Amino acid sequence: MQTASTNICERMGRSKELSEFKLGTVIGCHLCNKSIREISFPLNIPRSTVSGIITKWKQLGTTATQPQSERG
């Protein structure tokens, strides 16, 4: 049984990372010249997330999560 707070967390930002399969699917669709809207709707991923994945892939050449810098 899910509580109300769990259900809210699922709907609101930064709840979990996308799987490697979904990341690869986004890039594959992008390489097949699909628009961001055509990619986001069937995968149920926000357009801003799809855009961010594509931008990160173009800049870094990877979709892997980068380590965060530690606080000093």
Score class of each variant (00 low, 15 high):
25 T>P: 01
30 H>Y: 08
48 S>A: 02
41 F>L: 11
47 R>M: 12
51 S>L: 04
69 S>H: 07
12 M>A: 02
8 I>V: 13
29 C>F: 11
40 S>A: 09
39 I>W: 07
67 P>L: 11
55 T>Y: 03
43 L>P: 07
71 R>D: 09
62 T>A: 06
28 G>Y: 04
32 C>M: 13
25 T>R: 04
28 G>M: 06
66 Q>T: 07
18 L>V: 04
66 Q>C: 07
6 T>W: 12
58 K>W: 10
5 S>K: 05
64 A>N: 01
68 Q>F: 15
16 K>H: 14
10 E>I: 15
11 R>H: 08
65 T>F: 14
44 N>G: 04
59 Q>V: 12
67 P>S: 06
27 I>K: 00
67 P>K: 08
13 G>I: 00
2 Q>F: 15
63 T>Y: 00
41 F>H: 13
18 L>T: 03
40 S>Y: 07
57 W>S: 03
30 H>L: 00
24 G>L: 11
23 L>W: 04
39 I>Y: 10
53 I>P: 03
12 M>T: 01
21 F>V: 07
67 P>T: 08
32 C>Y: 15
57 W>H: 02
71 R>W: 15
24 G>H: 12
44 N>L: 00
38 E>W: 07
59 Q>S: 12
45 I>Y: 13
35 S>P: 09
53 I>G: 00
11 R>L: 08
49 T>W: 11
70 E>F: 14
53 I>E: 07
65 T>V: 10
52 G>V: 13
62 T>Q: 01
36 I>G: 01
31 L>P: 03
68 Q>L: 13
30 H>R: 06
60 L>T: 09
54 I>H: 02
64 A>R: 07
12 M>Q: 08
44 N>M: 01
21 F>N: 07
23 L>T: 00
26 V>F: 12
63 T>H: 05
50 V>C: 01
69 S>Y: 15
51 S>P: 04
53 I>H: 03
